[in-house]
Design a protein around this nucleic acid. Structure first.
Lengths: 343, 343
DNA sequence: CAACAAAACGTTACCGGTAACAAAAATGTA
DNA sequence: TACATTTTTGTTACCGGTAACGTTTTGTTG
């Protein structure tokens, strides 16, 4: 009886999702015709096209991406290696990348790793290797990770950090430094000549890029940094950085490499009896959502991290598809608030 | 641009990764023996075992998880639906879940969605359906999402929000409210009787749970909230919440449902000429890393969101494996800083 | 030592798609 | 109308694993 099949499918205990074969049978064509239609390259007569489409509709068919990626040996998944999702910046970058990924039918596999812990990194990389992903987005762009990648010898596209090492030639994606010259101009115009920089960890590419940008921006005014202290991106380390400065040292401005460290610095300055901005101006980078509500509200650089995530993914996708990824710049904008004033 | 230091696919002669067949041939056994060994259920003689293992080693064989999951119809992937990765809390939860996932050989597919936008949610759910994941972790636990899930009728385990609706019976995972009674005790001991609550959006389960916890904690002291104002988790909304209060209103403490809103509230209070904590005490929830460095440092509840992510994943994994997931509580701890003082 | 059970191993089919090629149908041209 | 050409469709063989079952080897027992 002709109902046999349908009945069987309907009350089979393990109601499996329909396949192209089911669709093909219902539409009275071969499975290949269905596959062709799905690929969209044409070559299917309108009449059959209609029947297949309606069969798909009727069965609620959805392609099984696992099978597809096994057959094509291409996956629609991208691994994201990241250190600190808890941080606002990285989190937003990932979010942007995830949105862009979804737009292109990709999924992100998040793998967090402790960039300092080598065995942890190796394990993460091994996982990536197994997962057959189409590409890798490494958002925690540190020297250790880069070294681990070199050892791993991936045969798939890798985008490091969404941020290239500016000291080592042209990066595919240049971010985080674009508005620093304007920030420095702002301070110099206010009369600041003695500026302390609280940088990120030396091993982070982004930290080096930012420090470099401050130096060269000051150089254009014939100035140089009064001092550079390294933190670890945290508010605590910003606090410690200021505390580590000799009491005798004179400076009128502190530029931190991110907002968290700026925040810690502000508290340390106040504890030292220095008012912000009356005695010392303070700036951050990132414009975290809280920056406008700090005391005082923080002058900073808005980074648009989400956009960075979008661009990073697009860039990687271009590599995956064999197109030449266009070098991209993320816009940065100086946001002047009340933490900066005349020297 | 120099390709020199850029990592990318080596365009070598298609050199495909080794399969179990390659391993089997090299070891002089059938592919099934290799498969059996890999599964680890025994049934392989020591001699062959050695030969296969050494072949695996020699070829650098890694199982292709795509093929495996096609054959077994089980995947080792879990979809994570989340709203705001940029936020510290959600970011940390995801990070914790990702760590736990990796521990069990799972990978997380991150899908961010705008919980308010219905079509966006539907699209996200459709993606999940295609991706054949083993389970779903929905971290943005709102009513809309819950409704969308009900419509979607998943046939795989789903863990909503890592946080159950306490108003609607026993949740599998109870978080975020555990230390609120202690927080309220702290304030009442300081002599506060008139407390304003800045809650999260009404549609968020976590927001309701927290509001409920404040109310019942106060009730135990024979008190009730002077007023509840709803924000959207952002510092800006905390600021607006205080601004919306009539100038005539008297209160001695403000409890926000997260640290960001507490921060906004503090600034708004100061703008109103009220000193924190001299005139009004302020508390948050979450203990974001910056909380200790705000002006004044914020009294809050440390949530250990990462641990929450770990637990949520474990809970989901138990469901996937058909075990009964044990109900879990995340510890919370009141962190007393300088934003609270005697009324 | 024969008879039989258990363990080890191999063969074949299948998961749900795509690729490559063969076959059939439709179209154009002499 | 016949033939060459193009378009559409169908067949078969994979992708790299696992499942189910069949076969051989090994071990145990009477």
């Amino acid at each position: 009886m002709s109902d046999g099949d349908r009945l069987h499918a309907a009350d089979s205990p393990v109601l499996r999702p329909p396949t192209i074969y089911d669709v093909a049978r219902l539409a009275g064509v071969s499975h290949q015709t269905v596959s062709r239609l799905l690929k969209g390259d044409g070559g299917v007569k309108p009449a059959n096209r209609e029947r297949v489409l309606s069969a798909i509709e009727q069965l609620g068919y959805r392609p099984n991406l696992t099978a597809r990626s096994l057959a094509t040996r291409r996956s629609h998944r991208v691994a994201v290696l990241t250190q600190e999702l808890g941080q606002v910046g990285p989190g937003k970058v990932v979010q942007g990348a995830a949105e862009e990924a979804r737009l292109h039918g990709f999924v992100l596999d998040i793998i967090t790793l402790d960039v300092g812990d080598r065995s942890n990194v190796e394990q993460g990389i091994r996982m990536v290797n197994q997962q057959d992903v189409a590409g890798i987005l490494a958002l925690a762009s540190t020297d250790e990770l880069r070294a681990a990648f070199d050892r791993a010898d991936f045969r798939i596209p890798v985008l490091m950090g969404g941020e290239g090492d500016e000291a080592a030639g042209g990066p595919p994606l240049r971010v985080s430094t674009v508005a620093i010259p304007q920030l420095v101009d702002h301070l110099v115009t206010l009369g600041h000549r003695s500026i302390v920089h609280i940088a990120g960890p030396k091993k982070w590419v982004a930290a080096r890029n930012r420090a470099l940008a401050f130096e060269s921006a000051l150089a254009r005014h014939g100035l140089e940094l009064a001092r550079t202290v390294h933190g670890d991106w945290s508010a605590a380390s910003g606090h410690a950085a200021i505390a580590s400065l000799p009491a005798s040292m004179r400076f009128t401005a502190v530029c931190a490499a991110n907002d968290q460290m700026a925040l810690g610095a502000m508290l340390a300055l106040q504890e030292r009896g220095l008012a912000v901005p009356a005695d010392v101006s303070v700036t951050g980078i990132d414009d975290i959502p809280e920056a406008a509500y700090l005391v005082p509200p923080l002058t900073t650089v808005r980074m648009n991290s989400e956009e960075q995530g979008h661009l990073a993914f697009r860039n990687l996708l271009a590599q995956i598809n064999g197109d030449t990824p266009s070098p991209i710049m993320v816009e940065g904008r100086v946001i002047i608030r009340r933490s900066t004033a005349a020297a």
